[in-house]
């Protein structure tokens, strides 16, 4: 196959999710065309099984215990000392 047909073919192929060839005509950070026009709800991301737990709270209470308290007391001494 000669150059042009090959490169344009690759551009098309890169739009198939199963193909991982580097895109030729498409930009790296560009939204890709979907290989099909429409799909049922079952094939949408929403229907993906692992969607239950996507976002988590930004804090962590588990390691906020003893260690931190101890460390805090020690640092507090340094703060008090530096005040004098």
């Amino acid at each position: 196959m000669s150059n042009t047909t090959q490169s344009t073919n690759q551009a098309e192929a890169s739009q198939q999710p199963q193909q991982q060839k580097p895109p030729v005509l498409e930009e790296d950070d560009e939204f890709e065309d979907f290989p099909v026009e429409d799909w049922p709800q079952e094939e949408a991301e929403q229907a993906n099984g692992n969607n239950g737990h996507l976002w988590e709270e930004s804090w962590d209470d588990d390691d906020a215990g003893e260690d931190f308290s101890k460390q805090l007391k020690e640092e507090l001494k340094k703060v008090e000392a530096s005040k004098q």
């Binding site: 999710p17 199963q18 950070d29 939204f31 890709e32 979907f34 099909v36 799909w39 094939e43 949408a44 991301e45 929403q46 229907a47 993906n48």
Partner: peptide
Amino acid sequence: AWKMCHRDAFKNKEL
């Protein structure tokens, strides 16, 4: 967009 995106469209989901 996330919810409606095709679940196999890896690159688009990443974006």
